[in-house]
Structures are given as structure tokens and as C-alpha cells.
Design a protein around this nucleic acid. Structure first.
Lengths: 342, 342
DNA sequence: AGCATTTACGAAACCGTTTTCGTGTTGAAA
DNA sequence: TTTCAACACGAAAACGGTTTCGTAAATGCT
């Protein structure tokens, strides 16, 4: 078991100074070939690796980007992370993941800890609780301390920074319009409480489509799920009230795939044929949609692309390749047609 | 925009030495109350946060654990990570994620980079390629450098370290036995190539169950999928050959949920009723199994538990709360009964 | 008053590197 | 022979802290 060796050890052992060793290892012209050879051989033999903390302290660069997300066991986020990881890696960065669990408190803690010099920049998707109570002071601190950060997916207008979002409104508009064009008359919406910005935007798209086709807005077939994502039972019961009625809707647009999948399940239980009696379109093209039966038509939002672009934006800021005003990139969506629509 | 302030700045501003500031901020008894108050107030006002790199360099502790996994967009792994993150956080550690993409090269790179002092310990699930070519020198390096690491899920006997695995053999045995007991006569196995240890163990469990009930081993209904996990098309075609035959099996045990879900899909296409004509049990209780229809009976492997325990083991080693011989923890499974079995 | 002990703080070393700035030695040009 | 560059290397500062040790002044004790 060779002990972890430092530059000092090498210097002492070879009777030279640490500066000489350092220079030799970087092939500096200041050092003679023979000395370089000797030092390199020695370093090689002992598998010398420069101490990463020392490097980071010296260079004031960590080559790490922090990611703060509401949860990790979630197709959307895991795909975004995957995208982030890819470009981060390409550009020489590592990724540190922190989970807020949709809690304001944890989000704040995570961000404060990342802001103490652990990372060169941060990628954040805001937690539901933060969106609810609208306290964004931790983001101001980031700005004050000059730490680059970009918000993705769950963003807030009042925070000044780079942002990247899905064209939620547009995607919902497309989906709803499609349902209308195919002949649906009674289109329900399953969404989130309105403090969740993405749910809100999708609802707006839904409303715009209704308007365009002169459909009347019917609040009785629009429900906002106030349960946690992993409380399938609770969500199930809320959706049930929408479908187990005398005249159920003939189409449903759901703002995520979980709601869509649950709606599908309930529809089948109620004896409805999907897509004949009831068409369903979800948002987020994940694995549930692909494997449910009938498979679900969805608004595909290119999760990994979002992660990649977010990482690009952040790293460009970190490396000052972008220096102008903050930008907001909108990623467009497209409908992934499957079996739950005609 | 207040500039990031250091201890030196505080010292200079207040006309004291850096040591005094440092001590005052940690409430040392060596410093008088009045001085402490003054220093703390000043530090507070400027939102002083000690530089994390400096701390880490000094203490030789990073309070970070590295995680190297084959992929991230995968229910099993994302759940394991979730478990890891939870206990890591509880115990004051952060988590750095690296993805090997099932590549030996990337795994090696990742581990080498983590081993340079970036983390206090590493959690690893070995990539398929590494398992295939059986080159484990990077693990030896970790041992030589005294960097604690624990292997989870995909492990190798010849690597000496703490390990934590699912009771793959036992789970497969239970599942297969169950199928037999319920009357299945022709039980197919869909597995991975044999260099994937978990697939291999599950196959062994399958074989043991056959033996126990005096079933003959029939190689023609045992297939090893050699496609990548995201090549659904390729996997689909391989499984099709198993089901689209004159006398298809009346039960299938699949070593993961993707194979099970695909088998289900194919069975339905072939007009088989699941579970009447064909029963299916998968491994890994993920979201696909829950939402497919009929929903899939699976061998639940408690992914998050594995992550939690893995993190516990690692941190105990890091903090020397465990010092004895290496241990291997086996996490037992249980069958999650759903609609794909009688 | 004389000595021992606190009290309250500073100097300096240290963590492991990089980098700037000398500096002694050599070889070549004048 | 002198002078000057080039060469090859070392000393020291710096990154931002923590910590050990030393010490002057104030206090306690007899």
C-alpha cells in the first residue's frame, strides 16, 4: 500500500525543491530534460496525482457545477440530469446533485452550501414550496456573490438570471387544439395548483386553444391535483371524481404523465374505451406513457436537451463566454402520437 | 454587490489577526466577549462564509462521497441514488454523481478523478463492459490509496471491499417457484448475457427452482438479451422469437422490468391472455410494472434501501466506525403480486 | 512586594499546489 | 578578460483557512 504521495515528498526524496517538481511535471522549459525525466519517472512510479483540493484552492475554480432539483426519482429530472452530466463532462466539469424534496428549507440549505465555494455555478429547478411562498432571497444572495446560476423548468420571472423552459403554453395549446380538431367536444384538464408555474402555463395553453375554437371554459371539468406526486392513491381519488360521473369528458389533457396514466387506468375501470370514448394526452414523454396500454399520446418536451442546454448556458457564464444580458431559452415541444388518441 | 469576504479582510478591517477572527467565529474561550461580538457582527453583516476549499484542504476531508453508476435514467439507479442522497445528507455529506454509461473507459476515468482527493469515499456499481473484460485495476488503486469504497448491486468477488447486493438468486428462486406452484409447466427465462453478474445470479435462482421441482432445464426457452437497455426495438425482436412460436411458454420470468414489460406487450400482440395463457414475473419493482396493463407482478428489491445501506457502510468506513474485515450485505426481496400472475 | 497564573491575543506553521521573482553557474560574444 | 544571456533551479508568496505555541499584560495569591 503506497501512501498517497505529494509534491513535497517527491522533492525531498529527489533532493530538489517543490517548485522544480511542479514545473517538471508540467514539462516546463525551465527544467532540464534529465531532471524532468527523473522526476516524472519517480512520480509515475508512485502514481502521483496532484491533490484536487489544493488545486481548487489555488485556482479558485472547482470545475464542479451544482444541481438543485426537487426530486430525483422522476423521469423528467433524471433525464435532465443525464443531459447536464453529458455536457458538463464534455467540458471538464463534474456534477454535484442536491435534492430539495420540494421543500423551501432544504432548497435554501442546499443553495447556501453550494454557494460557499464548493461549485463554480448552479443549476436549479425551484421547489413547489418555494414557488408557493414566493421567497427568493437565496437567489439574490447568489447574484450578490456573483455566482452564476441558471433556472430550468420551474422558473420565476422575478428572479434575474438565465433561464431555460419548456414551451409549456405552446405544448398545451397544440395538444388541446389537436383534440378539438379531431372532434372532441368536452375536453377536461387535469392540472396542478396554480402556484406551480409549469402547470399554470399549461393551463393557459389549454385555455387559449379553447378560445381559439370558441369553446366555452367549463370549470367543472378542470381539476387541480393538490397531492404529492408519490401519493398515487390520493391522486387517483381526485381524478376519479372527474371520470366516474354521468357524462364524462370525451377527452382529457393532463399536465404530466402520471395524471394521464392514472386517468387512463380509471377510464378503463369505468368501462370507457380509450381512445374511442375518451382520448387522453399527457405531458412529458416518459416511460409510463410508452408502456401503458393503450400507450399514451404525449407532449414530448425533450428533457435531455433541456439539461444539455442548461449546462451549456451555465458553463458559458462561468467561463465568461456569455457576458451580456440574461437570456431565457424556450424549448419547443412536439406531440408524440400513440394509441390514446384517434 | 458585496464582494466575497475572507477572514483576512475581516482581520484587516477590525485591526486584529486572522487567528483571532477564526477563533472568535468559533466562539473560542481564548477571545474576550467584546471582541467576539464585534467580529461576529461584522462577519454577519457581510455574510461571511468560510471558503469551502480552504477548509477541505486543511482538514483533508471533503465531506463528499462519489457515486459511479452505469446510467442515471433508470428507475433502479435513480432510486438507489435517492437513498444514497438521503443518508449522505443526514450525515453531513454531499453527493457527486458520475455516469460510466456502461463503459470501462469512463468508469476508470471517473474513479481516477474521484480518487485524486475530490471525495472521501466512493460508491460504485460496475459497468457491463468492465464486468465483461474483467479488468479491475482501478479498484486496486483505490485500495492502495486507502480510499474507502463500496460496491453495490453489480459487484465482483475478486475485488476486496464492502459490498451490498440484492438477493438475486433468492428472488429469482422465489419467483420461479411461485410460478411452478401455481401450475406453470413451461417457464421461460429472459436474462442478460452471463457476464452481467446480477443476471447470472437470477438465472441460478431460476435453475435451482427448476431443480427443486424436478423440472428439466430447457435451453430453448432461455434467452439472453445482448442489446443495450435503450434499444427497445432490438430487445423487442429478440423476445419476439420466444413468444411468437407454435407452443409458447405458459410463464415467463424476466430478470428486469423492461424485459417483462416488453414480453407482456408481445404476448398481447400474439393474442395471449396474461395471466391466463401466460404468466409473467419481472425483477425490479418500478413504475413500468405498476402502470402496464395488466400490471406486472415483480420481485421487489428495495432499491432505496440498498442506496441507504450502501451509504451507511461507506460513511462508517470513512469515519472509521467500521474497521474490521470487509462485509457483504445481502438485501432480501419479496414478491409484489399484481395482475400478471394468477 | 514577589511570584504564579490567567487572560487575550498574535506569529507562524500547515494543508498541497502554482507561480513569480531571484540567483548562481555556464557559455558565448566582445 | 570582461560582460551578458541563457540556463536550471530555489525561495517565497499566495490561495483561505485552522491550530499550536508563545507572550505581554492583568490578575490572584501569599
Amino acid at each position: 500500500m503506497k501512501p498517497k504521495i505529494t509534491i513535497k515528498d517527491i522533492a525531498k526524496e529527489l533532493g530538489v525543491s517543490t517548485s522544480t517538481v511542479s514545473k517538471a511535471l508540467k514539462d516546463s522549459h525551465e527544467i532540464s530534460e534529465s531532471t524532468k525525466l527523473k522526476i516524472k519517472a519517480f512520480a509515475d512510479f508512485y502514481h502521483y496525482k496532484p491533490n484536487s483540493m489544493a488545486l481548487k484552492l489555488r485556482s479558485q475554480k472547482t470545475m464542479v457545477i451544482g444541481v438543485v432539483i426537487p426530486e430525483i426519482v422522476h423521469h423528467f429530472f433524471s433525464r435532465v440530469i443525464s443531459g447536464i452530466e453529458k455536457v458538463a463532462n464534455q467540458r471538464g466539469y463534474n456534477v454535484m446533485i442536491c435534492v430539495s424534496n420540494e421543500s423551501y428549507e432544504k432548497e435554501l440549505l442546499n443553495i447556501e452550501m453550494l454557494a460557499n465555494g464548493s461549485v463554480d455555478g448552479i443549476l436549479i429547478s425551484i421547489s413547489k414550496e418555494t414557488q408557493k411562498i414566493k421567497d427568493f432571497k437565496h437567489f439574490n444572495e447568489l447574484s450578490e456573490n456573483n455566482i452564476p446560476f441558471v433556472l430550468f423548468d420551474r422558473v420565476e420571472n422575478e428572479i434575474e438570471c438565465d433561464k431555460i423552459i419548456i414551451d409549456d403554453e405552446g405544448g398545451a395549446f397544440k395538444a388541446t387544439s389537436y383534440l378539438i380538431e379531431k372532434g372532441a367536444k368536452k375536453i377536461a384538464l387535469i392540472t396542478t395548483p396554480n402556484y406551480v408555474t409549469v402547470g399554470e402555463s399549461r393551463k393557459e395553453g389549454y385555455l387559449r386553444a379553447l378560445q381559439k375554437f370558441n369553446f366555452e371554459y367549463n370549470p367543472s371539468i378542470v381539476i387541480a391535483i393538490d397531492k404529492n406526486d408519490d401519493d398515487h392513491e390520493g391522486i387517483y381519488n381526485q381524478i376519479k371524481k372527474l371520470i366516474f360521473v354521468k357524462n364524462p369528458p370525451d377527452a382529457i389533457f393532463a399536465v404530466n404523465e402520471l395524471y394521464a396514466a392514472l386517468a387512463l387506468k380509471i377510464a378503463k375501470e369505468r368501462g370507457l374505451n380509450v381512445p374511442k370514448d375518451l382520448e387522453i394526452i399527457g405531458f412529458t414523454d416518459g416511460i409510463i406513457s410508452e408502456f401503458s396500454s393503450p400507450s399514451l399520446t404525449t407532449v414530448a418536451q425533450h428533457d435531455a436537451t433541456m439539461g444539455k442546454h442548461a449546462a451549456e448556458m451555465l458553463i458559458n457564464r462561468i467561463e465568461k463566454k456569455t457576458t451580456g444580458a440574461f437570456e431565457t431559452e424556450v424549448i419547443s415541444t412536439n406531440i408524440m402520437f400513440r394509441e390514446s388518441t384517434k
